[in-house]
């Protein structure tokens, strides 16, 4: 896994950035380590994290202490046990489903609006303060209103997740449109392409890299927002399960669930990253 990532800002940079330019010129990109070294370093960092966790709980905390219940030596075996039982897995699936649906809504709204905003300068100028305003409102603050409007259940969660995820997708898509090469559009004109053909064969593939950058950012945000969203008004999902373990005083299960949330988030991010790389690899080979 490579560590350098184009477009880690909210408005990601264009896929063929300076790094690939350097690579094409036959030089190693500056400050990029060989893949093996960087993955070893990454694994080393994770081991240090694990050690710190272990030190803070098993080693340094008093042996009768409450903290002991959150140690890796209890949480990890507990997680292994829980993975063998249906309970946790059901909550995981419920959560993942919500994430996917929330992201789907965000894409359905963010991509078309981003295309429009990126295409028309005036629309961009008109909408950008409004978007900045809305973007800064924590999606969780909509919770009571969302529940009143959509009722108790999954819908308010979809709403909040989509609301959280739409901004990076929208803004990156718009940025992608602005970075389309004018010559690609001239090419479409010179082939007498209809508007629809230009959209489908030039604009959409042209912004795909940016959309995926936005999607990866959105995945990170959604995963973080999901757990608190699930702590109210629903009876399944990882957020619900966290509170449930607390109420049952099952602290080792609680810690195992926290661990699970981290692992799943890590995997989701890796998946989004691999999707991006699979799509853009051939373009910058």
């Amino acid at each position: 896994m490579s560590t350098s990532w184009p477009g880690d800002s909210l408005s990601g940079s264009a896929p063929p950035g300076p790094a690939t330019f350097a690579a094409r010129a036959g030089r190693k990109p500056w400050l990029t380590l060989p893949a093996l070294t960087s993955s070893l370093l990454g694994i080393g960092g994770l081991i240090v994290l694990l050690l710190l966790w272990w030190l803070g709980t098993d080693v340094l905390a008093s042996s009768q202490g409450f903290i002991r219940q959150f140690s890796p030596t209890t949480a990890i075996p507990e997680l292994v046990t829980m993975l063998g039982q249906p309970d946790l897995l059901v909550h995981v699936l419920v959560s993942l489903r919500r994430v996917l649906i929330g992201l789907a809504f965000a894409l359905l709204i963010g991509v078309p609006v981003g295309l429009a905003v990126g295409s028309y300068n005036r629309l961009n100028t008109a909408t950008s303060p409004a978007f900045q305003f809305l973007r800064m409102i924590s999606p969780l603050s909509w919770m009571p209103i969302a529940v009143m409007v959509f009722g108790v259940g999954d819908q308010p969660i979809y709403f909040m997740l989509a609301f959280a995820a739409v901004w990076p997708i929208l803004l990156n898509t718009a940025e992608g449109v602005r970075r389309l090469q004018p010559s690609w559009l001239s090419l479409a004109d010179s082939l007498a392409a209809t508007r629809w053909e230009t959209l489908w064969y030039v604009i959409l593939p042209g912004v795909l890299g940016h959309v995926l950058t936005g999607l990866r950012l959105a995945v990170g945000i959604v995963w973080i927002v999901l757990v608190p969203c699930e702590m109210l008004g629903v009876s399944a999902g990882l957020g619900y399960f966290i509170l449930d373990t607390r109420d049952r005083l099952a602290y080792s299960e609680l810690m195992a669930t926290v661990l699970m949330i981290g692992i799943l988030g890590f995997l989701l991010d890796a998946g989004a990253r691999m999707l991006y790389q699979a799509v853009t690899r051939s373009r910058t080979a």
């Binding site: 090419l187 007498a192 209809t194 030039v202 051939s282």
Partner: peptide, 26 residues
């Protein structure tokens, strides 16, 4: 044809050459 080749980076050479052949106005 323009000064820069304006090939589409997401298409292979042969797909680039075929690009637009099946457009509606062709």
């Amino acid at each position: 044809a323009f000064q820069d080749a304006s090939l589409l980076p997401w298409l292979s050479l042969e797909k680039n050459v075929a690009f637009g052949l099946n457009f509606k106005h062709q």
